[in-house]
């Protein structure tokens, strides 16, 4: 299983004549760190959500760990989803619950309905959660309500929740778009280090081209739903960036740094 994810001719249309994703194909190797860049509305989020079927693809295939999951339903779909972690721009925590309760949600896919309803998590899973919370520096916040945390802390809870799923693939949808530069670095470092440590493949949608270049082992460029670039960061030239964002380089520069807002 060197290729846990293969996306073939993925197409998504929201109504006739408008293609959000247009015939996109790519593969992700085990442990790869892939960044998807492109302007707003290019279809980055849709691609990511088609992979774990939060959005139904209109056409094409998703092969995850060798299985075609583009049409599975019910239990089989949940079995696939529990192996695919997801991190969201707005953290998507249940804010009335504690950090610990939120983190344990990552185990729900492995439990019976009753055990999940009644919070009967395994003790070893809870200990694992503590270790991970310690690793992201949130151990002392375990009984705090999620609503009391700062943005960066909320995203760290999101990371731990996703890792509790023991995923082989991690999908990150604009994980740092709502964070300040300092928290952004903390979050990107954590995602990078933890996925590397556990050999998890990772796909990150990003606004910031310079962040993509810094972390990714591979970059995918999307423009109007089409894949226009797929290669290592070294091949992502300024000409290519202009091509992806359909504008000249000066329009993408702030203080000499490429900060394309996508």
């Amino acid at each position: 299983m060197s290729k846990p994810l293969i996306v073939e001719h993925l197409t998504k249309s929201y109504g006739p004549g408008s293609l959000a994703v247009d015939d996109v194909s790519f593969e992700v190797k085990q442990g790869e760190f892939v960044a998807i860049i492109g302007p707003s509305g290019a279809g980055k989020s849709t691609i990511l959500r088609c992979i774990n079927r939060m959005v139904e693809p209109s056409d094409g295939r998703i092969l995850f760990e060798g299985n075609d999951i583009s049409h599975v339903q019910g239990k089989k779909l949940r079995d696939a989803r529990r192996r695919i972690g997801m991190i969201f721009q707005h953290y998507n925590l249940v804010y009335r619950l504690t950090v610990m309760q939120n983190v344990m949600h990552g185990r729900l896919g492995y439990m019976s309905t009753m055990d999940g309803i009644l919070n009967r998590y395994k003790e070893e899973d809870k200990e694992k959660a503590l270790k991970l919370l310690n690793k992201v520096g949130l151990l002392e916040y375990m009984y705090k309500r999620a609503s009391e945390l700062s943005g960066g802390q909320k995203q760290r809870v999101g990371i731990v929740r996703a890792l509790m799923q023991e995923p082989s693939l991690l999908l990150c949808d604009e994980p740092i778009a709502s964070l300040d530069p300092n928290s952004s670095k903390v979050i990107m470092d954590l995602i990078y280090e933890l996925t590397k440590e556990w050999n998890i493949s990772c796909i990150v949608n990003l606004h910031q081209v310079h962040v993509a270049k810094e972390y990714a082992t591979r970059i995918i460029g999307i423009r109007q739903g089409k894949l226009v670039f797929d290669g290592p960061p070294s091949e992502l030239t300024n000409v290519m960036i202009e091509e992806i964002y359909n504008t000249s380089m000066e329009n993408l520069m702030i203080n000499g740094e490429v900060r394309a807002v996508g």
């Binding site: 774990n52 939060m54 949940r78 079995d79 696939a80 989803r81 529990r82 695919i84 972690g85 997801m86 969201f88 707005h90 998507n92 925590l93 249940v94 804010y95 009335r96 619950l97 309760q101 949600h105 990552g106 729900l108 896919g109 492995y110 439990m111 309905t113 999940g116 309803i117 009644l118 999101g158 929740r161 799923q165 999908l171």
Partner: peptide, 27 residues
């Protein structure tokens, strides 16, 4: 949003009610 996250975790219908909808709706 939080329901989407639980979906992504592979939670089933009743787990989602118990772990997400009810806690958020209690007030």
């Amino acid at each position: 949003e939080s329901l989407e996250a639980l979906n992504a975790c592979g939670a089933d219908y009743f787990q989602k009610l118990a772990q997400c909808v009810i806690p958020a709706a209690i007030p």
